[in-house]
Amino acid sequence: MNNFLKIQNLSVKVENKKIINDLNLDIKKGEVHAIMGPNGSGKSTLSNVLAGKSGYTIIEGSVDFCGEDLISLEPNERANKGIFLAFQYPVEIPGVTNINFIKTALDSNRKFRGLDPIKPGDFLKLVKEKSEILGIPEDRLKRQLNVGFSGGEKKRNEALQLMILNPLLAILDETDSGLDVDAFKIVADTINSTRSNDNSLLVITHYQRLLERIKPDIVHIFIDGSIVESGGPELAAEIENNGFERFANA
């Protein structure tokens, strides 16, 4: 219970530039944490480091997930252990059908848990149910993965994968940006509905409006690669009104 995600004194550099700076973050099971920070402060870098993207050098510190060292795991091992990153900019993958890919991903997760591939009928039912909630039309499922999707369509597709893969820890990297008002509500409420005592969310956003729908337990202000202040939802309101100035100068 105590050991869910624990980041201790983490410093990370990219191409000789230090981006994450002595970061500490402790997320417990069932909690929702929000990270707010200016552009370029290292939020996506942190997401990528947690998901296991290569090209980052861990200078110092540790990341434990469910009592296990995360850093030494491959991205797919992390995914199969329950970490999911909803990308800020999902890539386009030509020639790969959206729905086939989602099934392959789910089956990889199931295989890891010792389960057989999901029956095609069950899978179709599941996808249909979730995509209806998210307002994703059927033809988009048959298209090539993210190819020619608008920004908003890509984000909805990330949310669909999140719903179907049902991870322990979901990291949402500005999932709200690029969505129009209606889509924003649908996606936010859908993600909020996945909350339970067994899973956690790390929500990266610029906007308080998202945090009004996915109510965080803790809000962190993230400047230059580290958390400079943590608090309740009132912090988000302060950012909305006054920006990051007070923290940047702190």
């Binding site: 797919n76 995914a79 999911f84 030509p94 790969v96």
Partner: peptide, 21 residues
């Protein structure tokens, strides 16, 4: 990385990309 981050191992991810091409 995108494919791996969804649980596919690297070899399967590469295979899927080549298939896609």
């Amino acid at each position: 990385f995108y494919l791996q981050s969804r649980g596919l191992d690297k070899i399967s991810a590469e295979k899927i990309l080549l298939q896609g091409i």
